[in-house]
């Protein structure tokens, strides 16, 4: 069953391996590092949204918790970056469970609003708690990660490390989906009543997958801190949560590969748009980066209106390798 997924991971690993040779430019490698970080968060979010069917507009908060735990524990208390990342994971996990217990009782619109409220509160605290977080001026001087005595100080090294983590996360996610636990989650999505009549503890399982996705987001945030070396609350506002959901939805929520597709495409979109603006400039048409947001929204809306199963599903349907014998009966998975 999951052979195709393992092949997919293998293919992605090959692409990752040759990418730094194909992309000679550190700037673009950097863009691909951010792409990897978004992939990591989106893989977790997809498990929650696409498989368990629970929406969260609060994952920017977990990215922020990871990023700030790494930044503050290393700069203020002199912790080892790995220990700080671990602490970030623990804090995110505990927060996710505490927030998840009351929040995941809610459904649909209410769940979306409650998680959005949670993310907004975390952002307000990041800005307001100047004594701890440095407020709007943020935290600087964050150390780099070191792996077996090897500093992750070049874009190539960080590129490989982050994408290796994406591959590991994909491996975990694929295994989970095809397990008893994964089936339980998909059952919750299908019908909560039927799932619990078969012995699935829907309350606990929802909280567990919420917590797992929070951990992925937290690791992504920590890596961001140790790569950029300076953070402020700016990137962690609710718009980031919305962007993450956009990535998962554009790619297609029902497949982990959809989440990866969406994360890659939308992370690269600003670069594509800047190419476009150079091209347009030759014809004396001015394109401002201010319009990027508008284009994100337009893409999301078009996908939701015309291709609600997402881009990956569309791509998959056009390739016979990925499609099963009777495509018309196929939904999800």
């Amino acid at each position: 069953m999951n052979m195709k997924d393992y092949i997919g991971i293998g293919v992605l690993a090959l692409i990752v391996a040759v990418m730094p040779f194909a992309v000679g430019n550190d700037y673009y490698l950097g863009v691909l590092v951010f792409t990897a970080l978004n992939c990591l968060t989106c893989i977790g979010l997809c498990l929650l949204l696409g498989y368990a069917g629970q929406i969260s507009l609060g994952h920017s908060a977990f990215v922020a918790i990871g990023a700030y735990a790494s930044a503050l524990l290393t700069t203020k208390l002199g912790w080892n970056p790995w220990a700080a990342m671990g602490a970030g994971i623990v804090i995110s996990l505990v927060t996710a469970v505490l927030v998840g217990i009351p929040t995941l009782k809610l459904k649909g619109h209410y769940l979306a609003m409650a998680t959005l409220g949670f993310a907004s509160i975390v952002h307000v605290v990041l800005v307001a708690a100047v004594d701890i977080t440095g407020g709007p001026s943020g935290v600087s001087g964050i150390p780099r990660l070191e792996l077996f005595g090897l500093a992750l100080d070049t874009d190539t090294r960080i590129f490989y490390f982050c994408w290796a983590l994406v591959l590991v996360a994909l491996y975990f996610a694929v295994n989970l989906i095809h397990s008893r636990v994964g089936r339980g989650l998909q059952a919750i999505h299908g019908s909560e009543d039927a799932a619990s009549s078969l012995g699935v503890n829907i309350t606990v399982d929802k909280i567990r997958i919420f917590a797992l996705s929070a951990v992925f987001a937290s690791v992504s945030g920590s890596l961001y801190s140790h790569y950029v070396l300076y953070i402020d609350p700016g990137p962690f506002d609710v718009m980031h949560s919305v962007l993450l959901i956009t990535m998962v939805a554009v790619g297609g929520i029902h497949s982990i590969w959809g989440a990866v597709t969406g994360a890659v495409l939308l992370s690269l979109l600003p670069e594509g748009l800047s190419f476009l603006s150079e091209g347009l400039a030759q014809f004396n048409i001015q394109y401002k980066t201010d319009y990027d947001t508008l284009i994100y929204g337009a893409i999301l809306l078009s996908i939701m209106l015309f291709l609600p199963e997402g881009l990956f599903d569309g791509i998959r349907r056009s390739f016979s390798f990925f499609s099963k014998t009777n495509t018309e009966t196929e939904r999800g998975q």
Partner: peptide, 29 residues
């Protein structure tokens, strides 16, 4: 109340939920 997006076999496999016990960590790792 079948699970519409899952296959027929997977639907029944959910019924074995209580007759099997692998947890999240083992499933992932």
């Amino acid at each position: 109340q079948v699970f519409p997006a899952m296959t027929v076999l997977e639907n029944v496999m959910v019924g074995r939920h209580l007759r099997s016990r692998c947890g999240m960590a083992v499933s992932c790792l």
